[in-house]
Amino acid sequence: MDLHTVEQWVDARTVDAWRPGDAWLAGGTALFSAPGVHLRRLRDLGGTGWEPLVEDPDGRLEIAATCTVARLAAHPVALFGQCCRAFLASFTIWNMATVGGNLCAALPAGPMIALTTALDGGCLLLAPDGAARTLPVTAFVVGDGRTALREGELLRSVTVGPLPARTAFRQASLSTLGRSAALLIGTRDADGAMTLTITAATPRPHRLRFAVPPTAGELREAVEDEVEHWFDDLHGHPAWRRHLTFRFAEQIREELS
């Protein structure tokens, strides 16, 4: 929709002090989907030319915040495609929406949050003065719609990997192809270590690590200890989300054991 209060559009590469009413613009699918009457100026990241996907020699993958979902969906790793298809949004949105935008929106069902949490992602944040810091995704997304971003701070990229030997994916929603009510991902490394990522059922992402695959009871206990709140909105009752989480967690444990 038209953002009627926006008075100025600037290229993010031009150095300019952060002002109240400024917003970073990546794909635009979040900013242009709500009136946002607080907005005065859009700082367009479209011209940054950041390489969408950069793989380092150790197998780690740096995903630029401006990497589109469509670009990620085309990546051969199966888990990437599974997570992209977990979007409520269609492929026509993937053509514009970005990985960074999904993280910054911080919605519990955000599948890019699930993906990057499962792959032990680290967020590179840049302050307006150029200062950089990194946070794990689980510390970046801190609640429903809440991130650790400070005023004017920018998510530059999220670095994941190396890719685990095996992954397991479970997702459910109230309607076919609907918004995720629970999205769980398990990973198993070559050295036997296992992780379980819980998203969508909880307000923020959770990641559990096990040096060796746990027993059913150990896993259940670990989830109970980790998760304090089950998310509640019209896309799923908290009790149902909890039920799905334990069910999927056990399925993942069996699949990866």
Binding site: M1, F32, S33, M96
Partner: peptide, 27 residues
């Protein structure tokens, strides 16, 4: 819907289908 859900505004930009209600015109 004017917010990217309904697709009634779908157009192609360089052949790629997008929701024009979300697509910044400047871009």
């Amino acid at each position: 819907c004017d917010s990217g859900d309904c697709g009634a505004c779908t157009v192609h930009v360089d052949g790629v289908p997008v929701h024009s209600c979300l697509y910044p015109a400047v871009r």
